[in-house]
Amino acid sequence: MEKLIVFFKISGEALSILRFEKSHQNQILLLAILKEIMNLELIDKSKFDLLRAFRSKEWIEEQKHIISATDPSALNRYQLVLRDGIDEIFRLFVSGETDEMRDLADALHCLGDAIQNKNGWDEFGFWASYIVPYEKKWRKQTFKKHKRKLPFYLRIRIFFLAALHK
């Protein structure tokens, strides 16, 4: 479970930085960090060091000691959403769609924190606050560009609806 928590925390921080990052070089560095943590078999607390170009040494050390989960089963389920979103972020970057890439990073950056909220995981609230604004903004352009592939926001909508009806 620790590997999964570290994955959510590092990806959340990298996405949080990426959502406002304008420097192409820093975007590449952040994507490299996300790529590095995609394999849970190889992840451990030392991977927080990957963020050293963006965060202080003190912050990194503090994060290494805050590894706990309030809802491990939700983290396990939603890792698929986060992984799919990160894959979509890579695709958007490669295709030069950096505005949409940053908006998707903004929509996903706090997924892990929202799941671990001490007041409980509010799937509907997360959907309404983070995914719906992304979907509304990008829906028309996405259908024009990707007629064959189901857009990310529709894949995640299906996932959320299925989770809400369990």
Rank of each mutant, 00 (worst) to 15 (best):
F160S: 06
I10H: 09
I33Y: 01
I60W: 05
F160I: 06
Q63Y: 00
R91T: 15
S11R: 03
K140L: 03
M1T: 14
M38C: 05
D71P: 06
C110K: 12
D84F: 02
S73D: 13
I67L: 08
T98K: 09
K145N: 11
E100R: 14
F7D: 04
F160Q: 03
T70D: 07
L51A: 05
K149P: 02
N119W: 00
K9L: 00
A128D: 09
L108P: 15
S129N: 10
N119L: 00
C110R: 11
I115W: 00
K137H: 03
V94I: 12
K149C: 01
Y78I: 01
E13C: 04
R148I: 07
S73V: 13
S46K: 01
E62P: 10
K144M: 01
A105S: 12
D44R: 08
Q141K: 12
L92K: 14
K137C: 02
T98L: 01
A74S: 11
V6R: 02
Q25L: 06
F126T: 09
Q25E: 15
F93W: 08
E58S: 09
E13K: 13
H65N: 15
Y134A: 07
I33Q: 05
A14W: 01
P133R: 02
E100D: 10
L154H: 06
L161H: 11
L34Y: 10
R52I: 05
A105T: 13
